[in-house]
Design a protein around this nucleic acid. Structure first.
Lengths: 317, 317
DNA sequence: TTGAAAGCGCTAACAC
DNA sequence: GTGTTAGCGCTTTCAA
């Protein structure tokens, strides 16, 4: 009898015991989908994730997973290999009628053509690491992170600070760039055009090691003078930068300081000073917000910005 | 009417047209779980993955994802943070009655206490990057990979070849170690105890950059002589090794050759010669095998071993 | 408190 | 060909 399994209070101790006993003997398990159908609830959420964001993605997913399983829900994963062509298809799949109670949408531009779709059908959704005014979102404050990093460099006494950035079409790259400039401005430092390189590499929007390596090469080839510190828009690029530097015999941090962004696992290995995004926690919060949204579809969209924190290691003494 | 949506041939052109028309107008979608319940099929598989295997895991997952979505199935993901305590719990969840048609079990020791469970209930399962005689499995031939790498070093003319390995309790580390020794033996090379280091670091069984770094330090501290080439049991460790070497002013490959294993993304960045595991393809094949198993539960377990291939880059001239 | 029956939304078998 | 109905396995309502 369904009543006892579902903890209905109106059952006598005796029947409860008996039912439980039989259930155990028969190794009974309710059928997943019969239950979901009858209850009109999916007990599942889906996650749409671009597959290229490696480090970030895994950490956030851990957070998501841990929270979600604590709540007894299932995670249906849709990994998007080519966002520009596949997002809409996966949105469709993940929102097939009844399938999930909510969706987590990661790191991709949310297609404008689907905002009505979600709103009309009242499908709870939270955007992670991306933004849209009509939906809940969890992001990291790239501007403040870059500001923090730059301020740190300034407080260390650096005057000439360079920047190596990923493609500025990319929203996070742009925000980090702006934070960098603002920090310079607020502290009376000059922005040196000759110490500014935007990578040409477009793979992952320039957020890759080779991009950092080559951008640094370019900086080195411009002339003899170098800044005393460089802010790099991501750790993975920073590692490329350090590589390029060390090839020329330039020591980090003795000859030049380097600061990154993200705090990926390798950053620790390299002793890289950087700005840490609380990835795991973002995953947890994303799930929490999604559940709140599921329970109250009327509240207006909330945007949570995580403040990154400085992680001081060895590359900026 | 269900007939036309499901492509039943016994429908007149006209009704088909009409039904389709109405369905479109009403924006009709069959209810996911009603369908699954009636069909007694889950149209979903689950994947049990340990969360720490980073690079490998993402690549394989891509393959899984791409094949699975080609087949129109859903992927229910269970990320295991602490295999030693959580596997059984997630096995239970992922095999809840009716939930999935099959399961993919990754890179963890399959608990002996659950082999009967799967066999009796006839749940299709394929093990990926791990092995059990009673179930289908997809693995990489670590022995042959290491053999290949070592043979390559030998053919390059190296006499004194060192090895830096992860914890030998770990099955892949051991297999790679054995492949290394066998290659030495087969080609009349000596195994030098003084050029052999097993890492002490136990994080990820020693498959991490710092482990490589420190193991190499240890090798360097032993005395003046060095081998002319080193086989390292993983790329991530090899990067640590190169780091330690370059700190001492020892150039790779001028002073010493280094070869890794895995072909992670960083390997390309570092120009590291290595042995490539076809991770994406393993994911694809895993899904294919799982489907074959789902269609025929009687065939006896098959074990597929992928042969890794040498990727020659710049660290072994 | 408990037994019975009416959904949940679909598929498949059965008549017509 | 097409309409009808009996499941699929559970939850929930309604009597009893």
């Amino acid at each position: 009898m369904s009543r006892v399994l579902n903890g209905n209070p109106h059952v006598s101790e005796e029947t409860r015991r008996k039912v439980l006993e039989v259930a155990r003997r028969l190794n009974y398990q309710p059928h997943t989908y019969a239950q979901r159908l009858a209850k009109q609830k999916a007990y599942a959420i889906s996650a749409l994730i671009p597959f290229f964001i490696n480090y970030f993605f895994i950490e956030v997913l851990r957070g998501v997973q841990s929270k979600i399983s604590e709540l007894g829900f299932d995670l249906v994963l849709y990994g998007v290999n080519d966002p520009s062509t596949q997002v809409e298809h996966y949105i469709q799949k993940s929102t097939h009628r009844g399938k999930v109670d909510g969706v987590l949408f990661f790191s991709m531009k949310f297609p404008e053509s689907y905002v009505r779709y979600f709103i009309q059908r009242g499908i709870p959704i939270v955007l992670v690491d991306t933004y849209h005014p009509k939906f809940d979102s969890i992001t990291v404050d790239n501007f403040r992170g870059a500001y923090l990093a730059t301020k740190h460099l300034i407080e260390l006494g650096h005057e000439k600070i360079g920047i190596i950035t990923a493609r500025l079409e990319s929203v996070p790259a742009k925000q980090r760039f702006d934070g960098f400039k603002q920090a310079l401005l607020d502290h009376g430092r000059k922005f040196y055009d000759e110490f500014f390189v935007e990578t040409k590499d477009t793979r992952h929007d320039g957020f890759n090691r080779e991009a950092g390596y080559h951008a640094c090469k370019e900086l080195l080839n411009r002339g003899a003078k170098l800044p005393s510190a460089i802010f790099v828009s991501s750790d993975i690029q920073a590692i490329g930068v350090i590589e390029a530097l060390s090839e020329k015999g330039i020591k980090v941090p003795d000859d030049i300081s380097v600061i990154g962004f993200d705090d990926i696992e390798l950053a620790k290995d390299f002793g890289l000073t950087t700005v840490r995004q609380p990835m795991y926690e973002m995953g947890v919060v994303a799930v929490e917000k999604l559940f709140e949204r599921m329970n109250d579809k009327k509240i207006s969209p909330r945007h949570i910005k995580f403040i990154p924190e400085l992680v001081i290691r060895k590359t900026c003494p």
